[in-house]
């Protein structure tokens, strides 16, 4: 049973005097149970709209098949909402109430114990400031209270939209650690929407990438990264100039690195790296290093979403890894 299943979901916003704006365009999304699923997309790609449709805040066009924890949305939402925690964009709390009171009111509405409120305040390290009014909190504290609210129900599905916003480095580390821990507990599925690609890469097991309201790539993070791979390798030789001539003569596309050092070369679109070794050895050039370049998620993301800058960007920005490994 998937945690989230959306099939053919479209959403258009009517605009006065202008044609409707299509926020989601026949979107398919599947998030399997367990682990941390990243949700990526450029601004305006439809990430937040997707989350809002999923939580019943926004109605999709027509009657598409949307299921949350195996219940149809929005009709079945009341059956499963007790198992779904959410933080969408900014935390929405009453500014005049204390952090603790804000959580207690939500807990009362859902039949969650007061002890759980204290646990969640402890988890996000807000116990000492729980009596202070929400409006006096820093941005990071507000964000942590929002995460605490999302955790109150001990959710089976946790939806976090930009949870690191406003957090200091230590707070970001703590939140990422918390997300990883939740994703590993075998009970919780985390759907993490973030513009921090490094965060997704570090924390997520799988990822969906949205562009123009459609899901353009999805799968385990390693698979998505491999999809963005260009087959480039970096080699290190004693004489880069001579080696470049040899490889060019053998039909390879070669370029110097961004900062030429006379010893390093980038060889593009290599299907079999062993051919490089063979071609150079025939001419008595011997490799000191050969590293396949796996693009980081940012490069893959930009390539997949069709960002024009990425098409021109050299693969040198990639992160060298062992083949099949993760950065």
């Amino acid at each position: 049973m998937p945690a989230v299943q959306m099939t053919g979901v479209s959403k258009s916003y009517r605009r006065r005097g202008r044609p409707p704006q299509k926020a989601l365009d026949d979107l398919d999304l599947l998030v399997e149970n367990g682990g941390v699923h990243g949700f990526l997309g450029p601004n305006g790609s439809g990430k937040t709209t997707t989350i809002r449709v999923l939580l019943g805040l926004v109605s999709a066009d027509g009657a598409p098949d949307i299921r949350l924890l195996d219940r149809p949305v929005p009709a079945g939402l009341p059956d499963v909402i007790g198992a779904v925690g959410a933080l969408v964009e900014t935390p929405l709390f009453f500014p005049g109430f204390s952090g603790r009171l804000n959580l207690q009111l939500l807990a009362e509405a859902a039949g969650v114990s007061r002890a759980r409120v204290e646990e969640c305040l402890e988890i996000v390290d807000l116990t000492d400031r729980a009596r202070d009014r929400f409006k006096g909190y820093s941005l990071g504290m507000k964000q942590r209270l929002g995460i605490a609210a999302a955790l109150l129900k001990s959710p089976r599905l946790l939806v976090l939209d930009e949870p690191s916003n406003g957090l200091d480095p230590a707070g970001i580390r703590d939140v990422r650690e918390l997300i990883r821990r939740l994703g590993r507990d075998g009970r919780t599925t985390v759907l993490l929407s973030s513009h921090l690609l490094a965060e997704i890469q570090q924390v997520c097991d799988s990822v969906s990438i949205l562009a123009r309201g459609r899901c353009v790539a999805a799968g385990p993070v390693a698979d998505v990264l491999a999809r963005g791979s260009t087959g480039d390798v970096r080699i290190r030789v004693p004489d880069a100039g001579a080696a470049a001539a040899v490889l060019a003569g053998a039909g390879f596309a070669v370029s110097p690195p961004e900062v030429p050092d006379g010893r390093t070369l980038l060889v593009h679109r290599v299907s079999a790296p062993g051919e490089i070794t063979r071609a150079l050895a025939r001419q008595d050039h011997f490799l000191e290093e050969l590293t396949p370049l796996t693009p980081d998620l940012e490069s893959a993301f930009l390539a997949i979403t069709g960002d024009p800058a990425s098409a021109e960007a050299p693969p040198a920005g990639g992160v060298p890894t062992a083949p099949g490994g993760r950065a």
Partner: peptide, 14 residues
């Protein structure tokens, strides 16, 4: 397209 991870499935009703 879907992202599939090998995790123990949670029970439908808890």
């Amino acid at each position: 397209m879907s992202a599939v991870t090998e995790r123990p499935a949670a029970t439908p009703t808890d």
